[in-house]
């Protein structure tokens, strides 16, 4: 079976990386960072999948559960990602209020 989940999540990571390096707009860069984060979270979740498994909440009806650890890790990783995004966006707002633009080239030009 082809692991679509792995391929999709790695593609998300690679795309996010491309956006972060190639784009010049701050908001786009931050979106790229978020995409990388999402990709890794998807990756972690898919590692924990067990064929035929269900959510690990015990009620005696299901014999197979998926691995609970990646879910716990992703919970942590999501919150961390949200925090980084909040701070990055507020820094972007700060730059915008200081310079009136979110284009990196413009900001660099203004500094010199």
């Amino acid at each position: 079976m082809i692991p679509y989940y792995y391929i999709a999540s790695i593609a998300l990571i690679a795309l996010g990386f491309y956006i972060v390096i190639a784009k010049k707009n701050l908001i786009k860069i931050i979106i790229g960072l978020d995409m990388m984060d999402t990709g890794v979270n998807l990756l972690l979740i898919s590692i924990g999948y067990v064929k035929g498994g269900t959510a690990p909440i015990e009620n005696g009806n299901y014999p197979i559960y998926v691995d609970p650890i990646p879910q716990a890790l992703v919970l942590t990783a999501i919150v961390i990602g949200v925090s980084v995004m909040a701070l990055a966006l507020s820094i972007a707002i700060g730059l915008y209020k200081n310079t009136g633009t979110v284009e990196i080239d413009e900001i660099r030009r203004l500094r010199e």
Binding site: F17, V20, L26, I29, L33, M36, D37, V84, L87, A88, I91, A92, G94, L95, N98, T99, I107, L110, R111
Partner: peptide
């Protein structure tokens, strides 16, 4: 401006 620029660079590289 200097502080924000430095912090932004740090955020980007740090999150990667």
């Amino acid at each position: 401006l200097k502080g924000f620029e430095g912090a932004l660079k740090y955020v980007i590289l740090g999150s990667i």
